[in-house]
């Protein structure tokens, strides 16, 4: 079994217009910047992939990563918990101009909806958002005297994630707090593409250390010196 792919360009070549794409990371931590930029390169060269729905905790920072996708006009809708931040002008401008749709989801609910999709659970009940405007229109039920809101699974066509080590089968580890949404998104997408800092031979990751088992991963591409979103934003880089 060999899920290795030679380049980020090849890895994202099959993402069609209108796809729903989960992108891992929390802010810049664990964000697959090189895969995102490969999508932007392809869009600039071919006009695809366009009209994407992107699922991420945030909505991009500065002029790189998801923010650069928004500036390029590739994203029709964001599903996220926290689009507002100090360097989120790209999203703010597009949103206030009515050029991009937003589905706002509480952070823990976003994580659990993704996990549920990956686990084959179509809906679940959570206390989060009960009695608030984000629960409007959703079914509510009482369990042991407390009220809960029904939330549905959240699936995607593709997930783009960033790992630390990967092997040809697709087993993954993550670096520090870069884990965040990445393992969940691997489970919830029809096709999961991982960029890893280092590809090792099969068996090169101790089975006890595997965080995402290979069954959840479809493609692995090595990006040996990955860029860090926060550093790029601080350096004022525009992609």
């Amino acid at each position: 079994m060999d899920k290795r792919i030679a380049s980020t360009a090849e890895a994202v070549a099959g993402i069609p217009d209108g796809a729903t794409v989960m992108i891992g990371g929390f802010g810049g931590s664990g964000a697959p910047i090189e895969l995102i930029h490969a999508m932007i390169d392809r869009y600039r060269a071919t006009g695809s992939p366009a009209r994407l729905t992107v699922i991420n905790n945030n909505a991009g920072n500065g002029g790189i990563g998801i923010a650069a996708m928004i500036k390029a006009g590739m994203i029709a809708k964001m599903i996220c918990s926290f689009p507002r931040s100090s360097n989120a002008e790209a999203f703010n401008t597009a949103y206030l101009a009515g050029e991009i749709a937003l589905e706002l989801v509480p952070q823990g609910t976003l994580a659990e909806r993704i996990r549920a999709a990956g686990a084959g659970i179509p809906a679940f009940y959570t206390p989060t958002s009960y009695g608030t405007e984000l629960a409007e229109g959703k079914p509510v039920a009482e369990f042991d005297g407390t009220s809960y809101v029904q939330e549905r699974w959240l699936k995607a066509d593709f997930a783009l994630v960033k790992g630390e080590l990967g092997d040809p089968m697709g087993n993954l580890t993550y670096r520090l707090a870069g884990r965040n949404f990445n393992p969940l998104m691997c489970m919830a997408a029809a096709t999961t593409i991982a960029q890893v800092r280092q590809l090792v031979e099969t068996g090169g990751i101790e089975p006890e250390s595997v965080i995402t088992p290979s069954i959840f991963v479809d493609a692995v591409v090595e990006v040996p010196a990955p860029q860090q979103e926060e550093q790029l934003v601080r350096d004022g880089v525009e992609y």
């Binding site: 926290f82 937003l102 706002l104 509480p106 952070q107 823990g108 206390p127 989060t128």
Partner: peptide
């Protein structure tokens, strides 16, 4: 008005 953002606020109040 503006861009809404909730993050983990609604989760943290439970549990």
């Amino acid at each position: 008005k503006g861009v809404p953002a909730v993050g983990g606020a609604m989760d943290l109040v439970h549990g």
